[in-house]
């Protein structure tokens, strides 16, 4: 018998600090698998966010930089501009990317920074104990929306892929999920396409991954997968929002 599935080499052989059933681990693995398949661990620099995945620098075996909350796209810009032949990715949660770091995200995209952004959307601030995120769904109960998110008071969720797809610098904006094996396989293809875009100097590629937070949602890990399917996907439809490989931009750039 031969090994047909094991931990990718780009991931360190340590136990993640994530809660049981938290899908961050799946997303880490997919990124590491792509790095392995492309053979680029030695040329890759990752940038971590502030949030649950803050300690991802211990998990990825490539060189890693820890950014301030929301600033990962700016840090990645500094890395990539001075090291254009290296692969640079950020790994960010919804609060990091779509609240405190919105300006850095939008401007890295519109500049067409040739980086990969892995955006983990689990509709909550996990690290601080489950407060409202920019992607928290209307009606969703969190620590800071104890009566459910009321758009009258707290506004509406941000749909990041839809927003970034409008920008000329965005090469790829795709939303995927990790709540089932078929979705996970699709997610991996999207992440690989994003890294290949960077290799081919296509510009800014973002893969939004719908993810779970069983602990702060107050659900079992298995029920959390179901909530992702039943509540998140209808609000955040999966799919390709922009892909310049498939649909070249109309305007001359």
């Amino acid at each position: 018998m031969a090994v047909v599935f094991e931990k990718p080499k780009a991931l360190a052989d340590i136990t993640f600090h994530y809660c049981p059933g938290c899908t961050h681990g799946i997303i880490h693995r997919l990124v590491a698998e792509v790095i392995d398949e492309m053979g680029i661990e030695g040329e890759t620099i990752g940038v971590c966010p502030v949030g649950c995945s803050v300690m991802a620098y211990d998990y990825f075996n490539c060189d890693m930089i820890e950014a301030a909350h929301g600033r990962a796209p700016a840090v990645a810009t500094g890395v990539k501009r001075t090291n254009p032949d290296k692969f640079v990715f950020t790994y960010q949660g919804d609060g990091d990317l779509a609240a405190i770091g919105t300006a850095e995200t939008v401007h890295a995209a519109t500049r067409g920074e040739n980086i990969v952004v892995i955006f983990v959307n689990n509709t909550t601030y996990g690290m601080t104990g489950g407060q409202m995120a920019p992607t928290t769904l209307p009606g969703q109960i969190t620590q800071t929306t104890p009566y459910g998110r009321d758009p009258e008071l707290a506004g509406y969720p941000v749909r990041v892929c839809e927003m970034l797809a409008t920008l000329s610098g965005t090469a790829l904006a795709q939303r995927v999920a990790v709540n089932s094996v078929p979705h996970i396989r699709e997610a991996k293809k999207a992440i690989k396409k994003a890294f290949e875009n960077q290799r081919d100097k296509k510009g800014f590629s973002i893969v939004e991954v719908l993810s779970t937070c069983p602990t702060n949602w107050g659900l079992s890990p298995v029920d959390a997968l179901k909530r992702l399917e039943d509540e998140m996907i209808p609000y955040y439809p999966l799919g390709v929002y922009k892909d310049t490989n498939a649909f070249p931009p109309k305007e001359a750039e």
Binding site: M1, A2, V3, V4, F5, E6, K7, P8, L11, T15, F16, Y18, G21, C22, T23, H24, G25, I26, R29, S180, V181, I184, R185
Partner: peptide, 17 residues
């Protein structure tokens, strides 16, 4: 088929065939 390992968030499953 490695579906269990694909779903595992902790890289805890190795599959041989």
């Amino acid at each position: 088929c490695a579906m269990c390992a694909t779903m595992c968030p902790d890289c805890a499953i190795t599959v041989e065939k």
